[in-house]
Structure formats: C-alpha cells, structure tokens
Amino acid sequence: MSDVAKRAEFARWNWKVKKARDALFATFEMHGRQLRGEWCDYAESHRLSTEVASIGSSPGRVIQRWVVKERLGEILRSCDLSELREERLVASVLDGPDAAWIAIPLEVFQFELIPSAVEWMTDGFVLFASDRASLLSVDVEEVAGASRIETTVIGEGIEPIGAHLLAHGPEPLPILN
C-alpha cells in the first residue's frame, strides 16, 4: 500500500472514530453517565483488537449467565479492585462500534460502565488488561423479550474480578468445543 493510500485510510479511520466517539459520549451523557479515559490511537486499537481476538476462544474462559442484570451490577460494585490499581485497563464499548479502545481508570469501569451495561446498554463492552492477556466481556442480550447479561472472564490478570464473580454469581456454563 502506498503512503498516500495509507494516509487516506488513516484519515478515514480518524473521521469515522471521531464520529463514533462523539456519539458514544453523547449516549453516556444522555443516561447520566460519563465515559472518561484516554482514547487509543489507530495502531494501538488495531493491536488490541487483534490480541483480544486471539485469546477470545481460550479454553480457560469462564462464562456465567446472569438472568438478573442488577445482580451483576451489585456484585461488581462491591468487588475490591485495589489489586488492579496499577494495571492498565482498556475498554471497547460495543454499543458504540468503531469508537476504538479507551484506557480507563477502575472507577469508570466500576461506577460508569457496569451500571450502564445494567441500565441501558444493548450490546455491552470488553475490559482488557493487555499486559496480562486477560479480559472481562460483558455481553448484554435480549432473549425472548427478557434481558440478561453473559460475562466471560479469560486469564488471571483480572483475578479479583473473576474470583468475585465466581464467589457471588451463577454457576459457570460448561465450555463446549
């Protein structure tokens, strides 16, 4: 690909992502929430998406289905995440496609993203600790008119979250290959 084509692709990506980010911020504000953090650039967003895709089907994943969304919110807000203070956490909010990855503080995860997933999100988000190849996927689903959440935890880098979910949540679903 020529330099001109690369610059054009990058400019298109920047324009698309800016629109997606603006829409995502507006959606959060409309629901009385704030999405704060530092947006990752094109190269890092591409790298993070590739890394998440590569570990997504890990046989060590733990999947739980929460039929009462509010229960997940209560449990994750009560989780002691002090061990994760030094971890660099990035999130991809699936309700805002093309918005890239955003590096967020723990407080945004616990008190903005989680309540948003419980209250109004229709798709969910992925929280990724890239240094430890660990993630939490929060997938909001509508099934037969009922809304529920499915969580998937992969890796040990976010162990306090995974342990807390296992201790207080539903039984893990079996992983079928």
Rank of each mutant, 00 (worst) to 15 (best):
P59R: 10
H31S: 11
T122R: 13
A167G: 12
P172A: 06
S58M: 03
E150V: 10
N177A: 10
K18P: 10
E171Y: 04
F10E: 10
E87T: 07
D123Y: 02
R148Q: 15
M30L: 14
H31I: 06
L24V: 09
S49I: 01
V4A: 14
V108T: 13
G60A: 02
W13G: 05
T50F: 05
P172N: 05
V52S: 10
R12D: 15
W66V: 05
G73F: 01
W120L: 11
W66P: 03
E83K: 10
S58I: 04
D123R: 14
I55R: 07
V143M: 11
K6L: 15
W120E: 05
S45Y: 00
D98Q: 04
A100Q: 09
D95A: 01
G56M: 04
I158N: 10
I149H: 00
S45T: 13
P59C: 09
K18E: 14
D80G: 07
S2T: 15
G155F: 02
W39D: 06
L135Q: 13
I161E: 08
H168Y: 15
L76D: 00
F25G: 09
R65F: 00
I75H: 00
L136H: 02
E119F: 04
A117H: 04
R65I: 03
R12T: 12
G124E: 10
S57C: 01
W13S: 04
M30E: 14
K16L: 14
W101G: 01
L24T: 13
E86P: 02
S78K: 08
E159P: 08
A5Y: 07
Q64D: 02
A133F: 10
E87N: 05
V62A: 03
R148S: 12
E87P: 05
H168T: 03
G162K: 01
V118Y: 02
S134R: 11
E87F: 00
V4H: 15
G73R: 00
L135V: 08
S49W: 03
P160C: 01
F125V: 07
L166M: 09
G96S: 05
S137M: 12
L136V: 13
A133C: 11
S137I: 08
L136A: 07
G157A: 06
E29A: 14
E51Q: 14
S49R: 03
E86W: 02
P59G: 05
V153Y: 00
M30I: 08
D123T: 14
F109D: 03
P170Q: 03
S116M: 09
V90T: 04
D3P: 03
D3G: 15
F28L: 11
W120H: 13
S57N: 13
M1L: 06
K16G: 12
R148F: 13
I104V: 14
A43G: 06
V108K: 00
L24P: 00
V17P: 08
C40Y: 07
E74K: 08
F125N: 07
V138N: 02
S2R: 14
A20W: 08
L84D: 00
P160Q: 07
